[in-house]
Design a protein around this nucleic acid. Sequence first.
DNA 1: CGCTAGATTGACGGATCAGTCAATTTCCAG
DNA 2: CTGGAAATTGACTGATCCGTCAATCTAGCG
Lengths: 205, 205
Amino acid sequence: MASEKAADKRRSILEAATKVFAEKGFHASRVSDIASEAGVAHGLVYHYFDSKEQMLNELFSERWSLLLAAMAEADESLETPREKLSAAAAFIVDSYRYQPEVMKVVIVEVTRAANSFGRIHLPEITRAYDQVASFVEQAQQKGEMRSDVSSTDASLLFFGAVEQFLSGWIFELVPANEEEFDRAKELVVDTIYRGLAPISEPVGD
Amino acid sequence: MASEKAADKRRSILEAATKVFAEKGFHASRVSDIASEAGVAHGLVYHYFDSKEQMLNELFSERWSLLLAAMAEADESLETPREKLSAAAAFIVDSYRYQPEVMKVVIVEVTRAANSFGRIHLPEITRAYDQVASFVEQAQQKGEMRSDVSSTDASLLFFGAVEQFLSGWIFELVPANEEEFDRAKELVVDTIYRGLAPISEPVGD
DNA sequence: CGCTAGATTGACGGATCAGTCAATTTCCAG
DNA sequence: CTGGAAATTGACTGATCCGTCAATCTAGCG
């Protein structure tokens, strides 16, 4: 079966693209950089992919669908909203832990690029935001979070915080190691949960 | 004095650049787009600026230094750490309110672009993070925030949240209007403050 | 009114690359 | 072993666009 070998080669080109995109950024990456990283002639890239953009799109969608699946799975199998939020944070942080290059491309080149590629993938991105918003709503219904903050806003806070940690690691503003990864996961969920806890008592004013 | 007219022209070109960058993103913007937006021949752009990049750099640095100045001023003139944090959030949100195009460029093209331009301006960006971290430390010393969370991490949470709101408005994921701007300012500061409040009592465990 | 310095123009050079394609090699099925 | 299909190559094309520059214009000074 030649198709298996072909699939392998395709995959190895996609991995080379990931590495190059992560290193130089999408715009500064040349198709020939990707080809030589993969050890092939640059014409071959076009045998497997339509364009440079297609590689980025595929890269992003593949990873993002894993996130969506992980969150859907968490929604099914876990009990409390808090566990579900933790699972979402953990998935993203661990994705960075084990494949920093992929996540760097996903975050920097797509998620945070409101112009260009962000626009194209808005529907997928929004789906993730909505899933987290739904976790928040579950927490609100259980009385674990205040209901006068919209779940959409809460979801923004959550993603903003998580992505900023990733950016901090990518920028090397903040040390990136096992301990920090675990600390960050917990800090984000904990802070959101405390920060959005129901107002205990309407005292005074 | 011809130099005043020249300065005006320079300024109008920079404003045209802002508009074009905001609309199409830096990479997709052509110098000729900027020139025609400003109503001049594209050669003239090079009379006033060295390159397309220089325009972006100047644009960013000009605005970012205003933020740094506003935070330094807040640190001097305001009493409580909470007021200082509020002032920082307000400055950023209001900058977007009154000049969305400038802030869109600042956030999307520089602050969130870890590759390319983010790197160049890291020192300035870091200065802002450090200022917020210092506000957090003041809150910690007053016992208003828990001290077992590093001020650096707290600062990341703060900027992550604020920037995500801006992104939400830019992406049009979330409505952008007067009410939302004010709500967002308050929500971010409030959530951080509650989320990082001192742990009331070390119960159990 | 003429002169000069600076402002302004836009044609042009030159470099870069994405993507194509005809030629060649490799692979394997029969 | 062989024929053909798929994989692979890299020279080439075509288009884009940044930045230069010589030529022209304009403003205001003496």
